[in-house]
Design a protein around this nucleic acid. Structure first.
Lengths: 338, 338
DNA sequence: CGCGAAAACCAAACCGCTTTGAGGCTCGCG
DNA sequence: CGCGAGCCTCAAAGCGGTTTGGTTTTCGCG
């Protein structure tokens, strides 16, 4: 069923039918009703491609997700995308997903822009010296950063959480409990959020006059196994840390397993504070919850980023946002052992 | 840069340029080279929308993923999609993601079909009496099922693993170790794979002359917390199971935590066999690995499903496939306690 | 030399929708 | 009654490609 057929069926011109269905004012109310009824009856839906071509809008937002080493796909992306996709769907936009090896990322954006496949994109996890920001600016493709850029990369719209602040608070919380040897299990070093979290941690340590031990800081992909392995090493040390900060609940689960395997108890022998993205399949449940966390919902972030990029596409002014994390006390922390 | 501009620049007709770039034979080799060079130099990429409209092909595959209750998004989908997206990208297809509340799923497919946004779709996790199969057949939209349909829903192409066989083997493995009280922690009841896994489990039990205790069978969304909560209950019972089967490594992690919290040890007091989809961020690592599993890579499945749907779109004949799972012995199983 | 076929290229139609610029009609008012 | 103002409706021109159906040129061969 095409617009033309529908128009013929109603003995009207395609113009009128198009206007009626798109809510333009210059159509008789009665005619409009007739057209809408017929469209609905015959299940007419405009051909997206034709409409896109005619309007020049792709009606789609792109998400390029890079495969890390080991084909690792961050489950956090998935959660974020869910939040975002819901928003797009609601306004008739499509979500276009491009999965590429990390080195192909720039080409992916370039292609999207040149082929006019999307009206805007979301850029995940900006890194140090990230080339994507400059590229997208040049390409003139509207974009929203999820995570603040590192350094000064010109004015771009981003949504981030207060990573430094959250980790400063978390560290302070542990210090207040009497901990002195505090380890940090962070995400990949060059990524913006990891840098900020580390900075927050170091600030708190410094303010308390505590030295940071480089061997108690690890940067790695946030998998359960990585968390486990690192924590196992730490637990074996004579001067083992009495508290650990982790950047993801996934690593935290690994750490938690290592602690037990070492015959120790979380919250008594070793304290743990983790960042919690509120992954739907790994919720930090219980009352009090299992882990002490700094919390910020990743799917809410996806939701908001989607709204922001849509506003950007619509030409509305958009302000960057930086959200607070919430410190939630759970059962994984306690006073430092004597 | 449009085709026309490029053609003018070269003093050629759009026809010739189009043919040259799309590899049609009726173009002088020399001319073709000239055209290709110019296209590359000016970074010409055909406008996707125009091309789609002209050819009538959307050059895209759709994945509709339903949000379960509690906004649960299955991380397994994410991993599957990664495998699939890579394949699409390689042949210049796009991945279109639609996230909808469960009840909106049918409309989502209907819209995709009527608007010609995609050339084909992947259907995830068919359920009992799944309306999607009939719908897509009616709509004439090529599709590949990930998971076998329940009952006879006409001829459709699917990719599945031998769920019943895997769980029969896993159960038999436990029985051979002397276990008698074996619990099953399964996925949501109406989903195809859960039904088959349960059937396999029951067959093995029956063959061994063992009664299945309905209170030792649970169907639920596969989250860590669900796994934990259920296992906690089981561990508290006087007649607690000595072995547990789980449908996902995520639940297995929850179970594992519950077992320890009960002061028991996995592989000694309680044995556990889980299905392992090989999630990249929750790999079952170690030597021997942490869990005894029935293994099948979900991203490989995504990869293959993508190839299948592309073949289907291309009009090639496609056969359904059912893959074997591999039983891998890890540290989570041992002889039944006396 | 003449003729038909093959090679190389092109003009124009088309895909299905939006949108511009132009009417035709009705109505109110001088 | 005549005329300008709205109100509706429409024909036609894009959007940027692909594809059909020529046309021109070259070439082989009797």
């Amino acid at each position: 069923m095409t617009l033309k057929e529908l128009a013929e069926m109603l003995s009207l011109s395609p113009t009128t039918v198009s206007r009626a269905l798109n809510g333009y004012p210059e159509v008789n109310a009665e005619t409009r009703a007739r057209i809408e009824a017929a469209a609905h009856k015959h299940g007419y839906q405009p051909n997206t491609m034709a409409r896109k071509l005619a309007t020049g809008k792709a009606m789609a937002v792109g998400h390029v997700i890079p495969l890390g080493e080991h084909q690792m796909i961050n489950p956090i992306f998935a959660e974020f995308m869910t939040g975002a996709s819901e928003v797009y769907s609601k306004v008739g936009y499509e979500t276009i997903l491009t999965v590429v090896p990390e080195q192909g990322e720039e080409d992916a954006y370039r292609d999207l822009a040149r082929r006019h496949s999307v009206d805007g994109v979301i850029v995940h996890a900006p890194r140090t010296g990230d080339p994507r920001i400059k590229l997208l600016t040049e390409l003139g493709l509207p974009f929203v950063l999820h995570g603040r850029p590192v350094g000064d990369d010109g004015p771009s719209v981003c949504l981030d959480i207060k990573n430094a602040r959250a980790f400063r608070q978390a560290t302070q919380f542990l210090i207040d409990l009497g901990h002195r040897r505090i380890a940090l299990l962070n995400g990949l070093e060059q990524i913006s959020f990891a840098l900020r979290r580390r900075a927050g941690y170091e600030q708190a340590m410094e303010r308390a006059g505590l030295a940071t031990d480089p061997s108690l800081i690890a940067h790695q992909e946030m998998t359960e196994t990585n968390g486990y392995d690192t924590a196992v090493d730490w637990m074996r040390r004579a001067d083992r840390p009495t508290a650990i900060l982790t950047s993801s609940i996934i690593s935290a689960i690994g750490v938690s397993r290592a602690v037990r395997d070492a015959g120790l108890e979380l919250g008594r022998d070793v304290s743990l504070v983790t960042h919690d993205d509120d992954l739907s399949f790994l919720r930090n449940e219980g009352d009090p919850p299992r882990f002490t966390t700094v919390f910020s919902s990743i799917s809410a972030a996806g939701h908001r980023c989607a709204e922001m990029v849509l506003d950007l596409i619509a030409g509305k002014p958009v302000e960057s946002e930086v959200w607070d994390c919430k410190l939630i006390e759970g059962r994984s922390t306690g006073p430092a052992p004597a």
